[in-house]
Amino acid sequence: MTRTVLLVLLFTSLISGVALAQDASPSAQEILDRVNETWQGDSFHGIIGLDIILSGQTKSHKLEVWTLGEELALIRILEPEIDLNSGYLQLGDELWFYSPDVGSIKLPSIALGDAVFGAGPSLEDLSRGTLSDDYDVAAENTETGFFLTLIPHPDAPVVYGKLEIWVTSDFVMERLQYFDQRGEKLQTAVFSDVIVVGDRKFATTIVIEDAFGDRTIQRIEAPQFDLVLDAMFFRLETFEAWGEGS
């Protein structure tokens, strides 16, 4: 009898162990969601220093970025001085550019994918657009975390043919490789200088190098996550107020 009870207990614990082990190993989509959550948060505020190195020449910019969810983003240019208080506003599918000199311009939503300064990161990159919506994701375990492969849905409005992401076990991106529709590598983003912000780890330096050797270095200063932001902050009048204040 005692022997039977022991066997049942052993079997039960084995089953529970397997179930627990399964719970501990998240699905590919869950990993990607966690990566996005770590990367984006519900809201974000930070100062981004940008060095765009093109054909050996460096242009530097400084931007202040606010995001609320995936729909609202406001990017204010701080440097160079000539562009101070210019910026971009994203309200869902609507996109605006504002300059104190010329006022506001409504942009086509396709401009989200264009490089803000003619080279370097796009508006979507700066407003920290989500990775998950338009892609099917597959995951493999690595020694330090996970390796994700993202393939866009056939009708997804994305320019990339494939993304490969290396992620640490605590869901911080280490490396992101972008491929075109023919499978050729376009650019690689390397994430470094990880800091702890609240309960998340966050890479504050991103070096993006394209196939032609041009590089962009993003340094994110004083990142804040899940801060309370009023949706009314995300409007063109905010830019105008800055203009009046300066």
Partner: peptide
Amino acid sequence: MVLLSAHPDASLGAIR
């Protein structure tokens, strides 16, 4: 007309 340009060699520019 407002013109907005972002040339890789010239960066951002906007004129009316």
